[in-house]
Amino acid sequence: MAKRYFTIALCILTFAAMLAFPKAVFNGASEGLLLWFQIIIPTLFPFLLITNLLLMTDSIHYIARSIARPLRFLFRVSGNGSFVLLVGFLCGYPMGAKMTADLVTSNKITEAEGRYLLSFCNNTSPVFILNFIVWKTLGQESLALPTLFILILSPMFVSFLTRRFYLKGASCFPDIRTAKQEKKKLDFSVVDACMMNSFEAIVKVGGYIILFSVLLTLIKELPWENPALNLLLPTLEVTNGILILHQFSFPFILEYPAILALTSFGGLCSIAQTQCMIQKTGFPILPYIIEKLAAALAASLLALCYLFLQGLTL
């Protein structure tokens, strides 16, 4: 009951704030829309479309078969699960979550493997890491390889800690053998269905980005300064959050681990996007949040170790 009243009060307060600060709402919505239109759609939509086509035509089997052996050895995943690994680490939020949910609902991987894959296969893409974090924000090309290494290694470290819980004594997740179904030929009807599915997903992602951008601008309009609140602001949305952390002008030995921790965590906006993608599976979101926080902690510690090895101290 208390949670219900809190939700109602929060919605009313947000509505009142939007009425009180219409300019901030407009600016926030505009920034979110531009981010979605200029960055998210060009980088994410093609991957949404092609992975839908691969899934609908059952072509992931051929890709999974070519990469399954080393990934099965390292992560104990099934053949189809190895494809989620590939997508989750290369294509960016929330592709890992969407592909996991699609394979679970289509009975191509078990629910246990789906939960395991979700715990570490929904990450920021290398393109975003290099373009936005290393080159645009930090402006240090020498950090490209260390940053990639840290942000890829951190969720993998979490997977090594959690997989015993999901495997429950098994050596690896099994390949699901189902009755052979007639493979759909690649024609315009299949492309159309995949395109509509991709449009639905990209619109949902854009809606959450706009929503959290508006919330971010509204919080900035508060008439009082609260240091604790200012430190929590970056956790709302990862792109704006990285810029906010950079603007704080912290010493680099604090800024770099903080940016990598936020990137590994993904922000509350990415959690909302993930929840949207996995809702058909019935997976709870709390374990995912805890595992992303663990990855964020690992990323910050690895970043600190790297900076200390480079001789940088407070």
Results as ranks from 00 to 15, higher is better:
Lys3Ala: 14
Cys11Phe: 14
Ile12Ala: 14
Ile12Val: 15
Met18Cys: 15
Ala24Asp: 12
Ser30Gln: 13
Gly32Leu: 02
Trp36Thr: 06
Gln38Glu: 09
Ile41His: 07
Ile41Phe: 08
Phe45Tyr: 13
Phe47His: 06
Leu48Ser: 05
Leu49Thr: 04
Leu49Asn: 07
Ser59Glu: 03
Ala64Ser: 15
Arg65Met: 07
Arg69Cys: 03
Pro70Glu: 02
Arg76His: 15
Arg76Glu: 04
Ser78Val: 00
Val84Cys: 01
Val84Ile: 12
Leu86Thr: 08
Val87Ala: 14
Tyr93Phe: 15
Gly96Asn: 08
Asp102Trp: 03
Val104Cys: 07
Thr105Phe: 03
Thr105His: 04
Ser106Ile: 08
Lys108Trp: 01
Ile109Lys: 07
Thr110Gln: 02
Arg115Glu: 10
Leu118Ala: 13
Ser119Glu: 02
Cys121Ile: 02
Thr124Leu: 12
Lys136Pro: 02
Leu138Ile: 12
Ser142Pro: 01
Leu143Asn: 00
Leu143Met: 08
Leu145Arg: 06
Pro146Ala: 00
Ile150Ser: 02
Ile152Tyr: 12
Leu153Gln: 06
Ser154Thr: 09
Phe160Leu: 14
Cys172Pro: 00
Asp175Gly: 09
Thr178Ala: 12
Gln181Asp: 09
Lys184Asn: 07
Ala193Cys: 07
Gly207Gln: 04
Ile210Ala: 08
Ile210Gln: 08
Leu211Ser: 11
Val214Trp: 03
Val214Thr: 07
Thr217Asp: 10
Thr217Val: 10
Leu233Lys: 14
Leu243Lys: 14
Phe252Met: 10
Ala258Leu: 14
Leu262Tyr: 10
Cys269Ala: 11
Ile271Cys: 06
Gln275Phe: 10
Met277Trp: 09
Gln279Phe: 02
Phe283Leu: 09
Ile285Tyr: 05
Ile289His: 05
Ile290Glu: 09
Leu293Tyr: 08
Leu293Ile: 14
Ser300Asn: 11
Ala303Lys: 08
Leu304Ile: 13
Tyr306Ile: 06
Leu307Phe: 05
Leu307Glu: 05
Leu312Tyr: 12
